[in-house]
Computed example of a mutant assay.
Amino acid sequence: MTETLVGQLRVVRYAAAASAADFRQTYTWRSWTIGWLGRMLSQVTFFALIGVMLGSPERTRYLVVGNAVMACVIEAMIVVTGGVRERQEGTFPLLAASPASLGTVLFGRGLQYPASGAVTALVSLLLLAPLFGIHPTAAQIPGLVLLVLVTALSTYCVGLFLSAVVIGLPGARNVVSNTTYLLMMAICGVQVPVAFWPPWVRAVSDTLPLTHALAAVRRLIAGDTAAAVTRSAALALLTGTLWLGLAFLAIRLVRDRGRRTGSFDYGT
């Protein structure tokens, strides 16, 4: 068991190193800061100004926190396109033939997305949010960093599951990615409280890690008890773990089908 775990962690480490190299090829510090970070800060500001226009400081703060945290989710969901990309680049036949778990490899290969997203969300919360009346204390910052990482990684697991689903539907990858994060933005407490929705929608939102992770962030900033924050964070980790299990199961099914039918070649 220990050797298996160590081996899996080694696979994740090497796959994450490849994902970091991809990130460096995609962005320079200038293009990431001005292009990506600037875009996400503009989005948070846009929604915050809706609260300002409504003349409600409480609504403004609600929108700022929700959309700042949402920034890491939007980037984490880019992993939905990752499986299709690997297939189109022709790496699947080699990965399927290797002794390493395909799910473990794909998990590590997309880790640049939640990592970058977490930085974006933290910049939004720590540098932009104070302009709208939100001032996390120094004692809250370590917890805030941890909760943003929990948010990014747990929602990344949802994206990893969807990545496996769209491997056979490459043309749908962007539609699925965008639709999913927009759905989460609508029902997980980003723009309106979860209680706004009917019971069946609330039931769906409870299956998504963002609902619980965002609740934990709001409770932390509001100065709620450590027990309440921990409870919400634990629910986020639990739902994220369940989605990760579903992702590994879906990826295994895709791998087995690809081996059986020989359908792993360049998106065919």
Rank of each mutant, 00 (worst) to 15 (best):
A121D: 03
V79E: 02
R61F: 06
I50E: 01
A76W: 02
I141W: 07
M77N: 10
G90T: 12
A96C: 12
P130T: 05
G38L: 02
V123D: 05
V80D: 00
G133N: 02
S42I: 14
P57Y: 07
T91Q: 14
G55M: 06
L63I: 04
S42Y: 08
S56Y: 04
G82W: 05
G108P: 11
T81K: 12
L122D: 06
R61M: 09
F92E: 13
F92P: 04
T120G: 04
G51Q: 01
Q112W: 13
V69W: 00
A115V: 15
M77L: 14
L41Q: 05
G83Q: 07
L146N: 08
S101N: 12
L128K: 02
V65T: 15
V145H: 11
V44C: 06
A68Q: 03
F107G: 08
M70D: 12
L94N: 14
G108V: 10
R59C: 10
V44E: 02
L111C: 11
L127H: 08
G51W: 02
R39W: 13
P136Y: 05
R109M: 12
S98Y: 07
T60L: 05
G133C: 02
I141Q: 09
A129G: 05
A129H: 03
I134V: 11
T60W: 00
A139D: 11
E89F: 14
V65E: 07
A152F: 05
M40C: 11
L63C: 03
G90D: 11
L146Q: 10
L49P: 00
A68K: 02
E89S: 14
V119H: 11
V105R: 14
G133F: 01
S154I: 06
V52A: 08
P93K: 09
I74H: 09
F46N: 02
A97E: 12
P99L: 10
I74G: 11
G90M: 09
